[in-house]
Simulated scan of single mutants.
Amino acid sequence: MSTQARFPAASRLLHWLMAPMIVAMFFIGVGMAATLSPRYELLVAIHRPLGIAIFVLCVIRLVNRFINPPPALPDTIPSLQQFAAKASYILLYALMFIMPLVGWGMLSAARYPIVLYGPLQLPPILPHDLTLYAWLRELHTYLAYLFFATFLVHFGAALFHGLIRRDGVLESMASWR
């Protein structure tokens, strides 16, 4: 194993705080999409504020990334893989940022309240338009599939670096050492 530099503590904390939130959203989304789910209302009540929490943490994470840049990848990683890693990070950040906004816009276009907790609600960000709602709902679904696929690639790459290559890339984000 190489002596790969570690991500700053704030970056690791945000990563490991958001990871289970995002995984939970995948399961909640599948549960919401299931026809006739008896827990639909409960899942929606969790999905909306959790999506906004992910959005807020993503903004914090982006600011943190500019203040605390990530360590460079090892020179032993081929340039095409380094490009793929950087592209996948950009896609993950874009999806963490865009997915909640599309969901918020979708609900706004349908005039559904975006309840965070009790009486606390978000204001609508788009005008009432059922055609726009339908389009954003479909977009939200396709983005969710893309997000899940990108997450699987990210998770697989982390395991590949940690278990096969043993080059320190996984350990650079791991809280343990």
Rank of each mutant, 00 (worst) to 15 (best):
I77A: 11
T3W: 07
L42K: 00
A5S: 12
S88C: 10
L101E: 04
R166L: 06
P70S: 12
I22V: 15
V44T: 04
L101W: 04
F151C: 04
L122D: 00
P100M: 12
L122F: 03
L91H: 03
P38N: 01
Y89R: 09
V23E: 01
K86F: 03
H47E: 07
V169H: 15
L14A: 12
H161Y: 14
I28N: 13
V169I: 14
S11I: 08
K86T: 09
M173P: 08
Q121T: 14
I114K: 06
I22N: 05
G118Y: 09
D75H: 05
M18Y: 00
L139W: 01
M18A: 03
S11C: 06
M21S: 12
A10N: 04
R61N: 12
R12K: 15
I28Y: 11
L170H: 09
S175K: 10
L80C: 00
L92Q: 06
F151S: 09
L73P: 03
H47G: 09
L163N: 11
T3M: 13
L159C: 02
T3P: 00
L80W: 12
M173F: 13
F27I: 13
G105S: 07
V30Q: 08
H15L: 05
Y145N: 08
P124M: 06
S108C: 10
L107E: 11
T150I: 03
R65E: 09
L73R: 08
P119H: 01
M173R: 13
L120A: 11
L116H: 08
H154A: 11
L73Y: 07
L73F: 05
Q121G: 01
P20M: 05
F151P: 01
Q82S: 08
R39A: 14
A72F: 07
L159S: 00
V56F: 00
L107R: 14
A158C: 02
V102P: 02
D75Y: 00
F151D: 00
A85Y: 07
M173L: 14
F160A: 10
L170T: 14
E138H: 05
I22K: 06
S175R: 12
I28W: 10
V63Y: 05
G105E: 08
G168T: 04
D75Q: 07
L130E: 14
V59M: 07
A5Y: 07
F26V: 10
Y133D: 03
H161Q: 12
A110S: 08
G103K: 09
W16R: 11
L136P: 07
Q81G: 04
Q81L: 14
R39T: 14
R111Q: 14
A33P: 02
V59L: 15
L13S: 13
T3N: 15
R48E: 01
G168R: 09
I46Y: 14
K86L: 06
S11R: 13
L62C: 11
L36G: 15
D129F: 07
M99R: 04
A110Y: 07
L17Q: 09
I54F: 06
A157T: 12
R177E: 07
